[in-house]
């Protein structure tokens, strides 16, 4: 401890991260506002969601964040750089698992005849999780790009792009952070 490499993420990354977080905060408060307008409906519809699946996805994303954090940490030390790749692969698998659970959840809702137009709760549920999922796919693409870049950089002993690593990892943690708040809002509040 003590001689850790300084935080090397460039300042611009935080324009995206804090910008996204601010807008998601706006989404959260908008959701809570509409929820208060028709609280019974929101309770009834929210009760139909599977809390277990929501919890499962929370744990999956937390695991993926751990993978990404350890991968970035491994990159800081030259002799441990090689360890970053399997950790990134782990993060990508977690991302894929998240998408799979979400698709299963959506599929079940559609089979039960529930969709984005059913009521206001489901509008928020599908839109907020959908927007998050869209971001997650972008995040997975970024992690994938990072993994490919890393593989070729390791093969040729080249420098690793700080921009790609910093942006991809911060973006991924931000997705985790957003889901951490989205999960209680949509699945837990009763």
């Amino acid at each position: 401890m003590g001689e850790r490499a300084p935080n090397q993420v460039e300042a611009g990354v935080w324009v995206v991260v804090l910008g996204e977080l601010s807008v998601f905060t706006l989404f959260f408060t908008t959701f809570l506002y509409y929820r208060a307008l028709s609280i019974d409906l929101f309770h009834a519809s929210s009760a139909t969601l599977s809390q277990t699946l929501g919890l499962l996805n929370t744990l999956i994303l937390l695991g993926s964040s751990w993978f990404v954090a350890t991968a970035v940490n491994a990159l800081r030390e030259v002799d441990r750089r090689r360890r970053a790749l399997p950790h990134l692969a782990g993060a990508l698998c977690c991302g894929a698992a998240f998408v799979a659970v979400k698709v299963f959840e959506y599929g079940r809702a559609f089979r039960e005849g529930v969709n984005v137009l059913t009521d206001e709760f489901y509008m928020f549920y599908f839109m907020l999780t959908g927007i998050h999922l869209l971001h997650l796919v972008v995040g997975m693409a970024l992690l994938g790009a990072m993994a490919l870049h890393l593989r070729s950089a390791l093969a040729t002993d080249a420098e690793v792009s700080e921009t790609l690593v910093g942006f991809s990892s911060c973006f991924w943690h931000m997705l985790d952070l957003v889901w951490i708040i989205l999960f209680p809002l949509l699945y837990l509040l009763h």
Partner: peptide, 23 residues
Amino acid sequence: RWVGYLSIWAALLSAPGFAAVLF
């Protein structure tokens, strides 16, 4: 470079417009 990141953020924010078809 932050202008570049701002552009990416702006792109992500402009995306929800397509959902106006639904509501």
